[in-house]
Design a protein around this nucleic acid. Structure first.
Length: 360
DNA sequence: TACACAGACGTGGTTGCTCC
DNA sequence: GGAGCAACCACGTCTGTGTA
């Protein structure tokens, strides 16, 4: 489960962080925040935005909160202060190229481009969030989809007094004091009769930092939309199948990748052209090259398949993970001396492709 | 028009690292 | 080992504004 700050509402900013770490030199969070703040502070076309989004970076302090969020999402590895797994994975997308150029000053972006995710990125962040914020984000998503239309206040009450204690129960040992505290949230809130006193309470401060960002992340991923100040509703224009999102909210982390990139992605097929075998293989090799650059020689086969699916989506094509897996296997049979899989422990398979000598 | 509350903007306390 | 400092975390509070 992620530790959050109420400011950190726009997922789009997180795409910049891996680009800042691509040189493979460790950077402190404060230094990264200063870089991030410097890069985005000049972009001031906020008035042009129809929806007036919240969570824009306006100060060094909230840039710092975005860097912390990047670490929570595993875009940054806290220990080494280098790229984390999801940071490395993001750098293998086509979309990352635009942000690398932006960071280097070779391309300029406006605020809309900076905070808006394309469909492939929405899927990428959905993946990262559902893995890293398990099971809290699942519960909130499930509640929101069933509720259809709601106010921020009621979402906060549900999130903090029902979902949060349940999520902590799954995430923390029974002895952990935070579990016991969370179970008393409702009782404590009801004991405060005066609304002003409630809003000034430390418990309300905690609510505001934990629940609202998650609603905004679901807006960025295209599942919810804002329908006024503090109001949300399910986005009826979303590219996903609502039933499939509901199913996604019931899965354990181990099942999420497989479901997201097989059944779930099928629900998006009406918007995309099916990828052919050649397109799948060409993209997979391209993604492999990018991944081996960031991960070293050892490329996790599951990640390779998921990222191939995402990069295909960026190019208007759709292919399920199973189809990509089959393409990999058939290629491995065709070129046994250039492509193979080696066991990497804990059921993780490492793919090796000698791309230099491979002719497709 | 009042006030409830959303959103912005900190800040004090804690942790952990480095150097002597 | 402990002092000093930087980095980091967990709330806290103020202001502006949408809504009843």
């Amino acid at each position: 489960m992620l530790e959050t700050h109420g400011d950190v509402c726009r997922l789009g900013y997180l795409r910049i962080v891996p680009c800042l770490l691509e040189d493979n030199s460790p950077k402190t969070f404060d230094f990264l925040a200063a870089l991030l703040h410097d890069i985005v502070k000049g972009i001031g076309d906020r008035d042009l935005l129809v929806s007036k989004p919240i969570g824009l970076i306006t100060s060094l302090v909230n840039a710092r909160n975005y860097v912390t969020m990047a670490a929570e999402l595993n875009f940054i590895d806290r220990k080494s202060q280098l790229l984390g797994t999801f940071g490395k994975l993001y750098l293998t997308t086509d979309s990352a190229i635009k942000f690398k150029k932006f960071v280097d000053g070779r391309e300029s972006l406006n605020l809309i481009e900076l905070i808006t995710l394309n469909d492939a990125e929405k899927l990428f962040f959905l993946w990262a969030l559902f893995i890293q914020d398990y099971p809290f984000i699942q519960m909130i998503t499930n509640w929101a989809l069933k509720k259809k239309k709601f106010r921020r206040q009621e979402a906060m009450i549900y999130a903090m007094e029902e979902a949060y204690p349940q999520a902590l129960k799954k995430a923390l040992p029974p002895s952990d004091i935070r579990r016991k505290e969370a179970e008393k949230f409702r009782e404590k809130r009801l004991s405060i009769k005066d609304k002003i006193e409630w809003i000034k309470s430390s418990q309300y401060a905690k609510y505001r930092h934990i629940a609202p960002p998650r609603l905004e992340w679901l807006v960025d991923c295209g599942i919810l939309k804002r329908s006024g100040r503090g109001k949300y509703e399910v986005n009826d224009q979303m590219i996903y199948d609502q039933q499939k999102i509901l199913k996604l909210t019931t899965l354990r982390p181990k099942k999420i990748e497989s479901y997201l990139f097989n059944d779930f992605i099928k629900g998006m097929a009406r918007w995309y052209k099916q990828a052919g075998r050649t397109e799948v293989i060409k993209t997979m090799i391209q993604v492999y090259d990018r991944m081996s650059f960031h991960f070293g020689g050892e490329v996790n086969l599951t990640y390779l398949e998921c990222m191939t699916s995402i990069v295909l989506l960026e190019n208007g094509l759709i292919a399920e993970k199973q189809k990509i897996h089959d393409a990999f296997n058939s290629l491995a049979l065709q070129f046994p001396d250039k492509i193979y899989v080696m066991p990497g422990g804990r059921n993780v398979n490492i793919a090796y492709i000698n791309t230099e000598e491979l002719e497709i």
